[in-house]
Design a protein around this nucleic acid. Structure first.
Lengths: 169, 169
DNA sequence: TGAAATAATGAATATATTTGCAAAGTAAAT
DNA sequence: ATTTACTTTGCAAATATATTCATTATTTCA
């Protein structure tokens, strides 16, 4: 899973730091023990949907496609703070607990992100089952969710411990 | 005002068409009687905040910075397509009809925007009552909602006429 | 108006990114 | 294990984009 790791690392770096050339990204990756050529990066960035925007200070920076909004008039966007209540791991799968009635919304949203880490999701009323692809660790799914829903883990951190006990009972 | 015209034309073209290289843009401009070199275009694009993203089909396209959003790490974002079904005016108030179970989500979101125009909201299961402040017209509330939920009115336009009849009956 | 300062531009060049192609790696099927 | 099909990768070359420098507008201000 050489490539998957690289893709995840690339996304993480671009989400966290300001990168302005592929060579710069190449060096950051090397610093994390991941090495490839700039040509490969170019291909990977395209696959990840990473683009490049002016940084407003005369330079450029790479940005994730998550940060692009589609101004297609057919979508309504909602920001809802405490939709996701808890995340639990079980049998190599991941269970997400939401507030009542919101599992399918949330699952739909996760599906829409089109992440390769996730083979599929099943949603009930307030519970979502996430099925990772073979070869994907739950840790990688966590990272993936954090990319799809930034701040997710911070948000549920406090509740998680308590709710785990309830859900697992 | 040679440059201003060019900048405006560039923005217009990029908003309306799919452009994948600066040379392509150069040709489009020439077609409109505006001519410059690629070097100038490069500088203009940076000034306008125009960036380049993968188009999802193996190519690239230029995009306006208007389409970039900033992810604050403390929010969870959901894209929900048809949450709001209809908007009806009555007695100087506004009634919003949502899909079942989503009134309170949506009302919470509207409240969170902290708009001056709105004195308060009351949500049932699939219906929200919006109470405008004294002196605020319903037209102003519409504008306000469009700001909070971009694309809202376009989305419900088709359904609105039919649903109005049902709700008002 | 007439310098002087500032901004805009093109031509050429430097830098950065993408791509064609062959080789190396992986997975699936026999 | 061996073949076959498919994916990933590096290298080198091709494109595309950004920048330097000299020159030409344009603005500012006395």
């Amino acid at each position: 899973m050489q490539k998957t790791n690289r893709l995840l690392a690339i996304e993480k770096i671009i989400a966290e730091e300001t990168i302005s050339t592929q060579d710069e990204l190449l060096r950051k990756l090397k610093g994390k023990g991941i090495s490839c050529t700039q040509a490969t990066l170019s291909r990977n960035l395209r696959q990840l949907g990473v683009g490049r925007m002016p940084d407003g200070e005369g330079g450029y920076k790479y940005i994730l496609s998550e940060n692009i909004r589609n101004v297609s008039a057919s979508e309504v966007k909602l920001n809802i703070v405490p939709v996701i209540q808890a995340i639990v791991e079980a049998k190599g799968l991941m269970v997400i607990k939401t507030i009542p009635g919101n599992a399918s919304n949330t699952a739909f949203f996760i599906d829409s992100a089109g992440r390769y880490e996730i083979a599929g999701t099943i949603a009930g009323d307030d519970t979502i089952l996430i099925i990772p692809r073979d070869g994907i660790t739950l840790q990688q799914v966590h990272t993936c969710l954090e990319i799809v829903l930034p701040g997710l883990h911070d948000q549920i951190k406090s509740k998680n411990h308590i709710l785990n006990k309830i859900i697992r009972k």
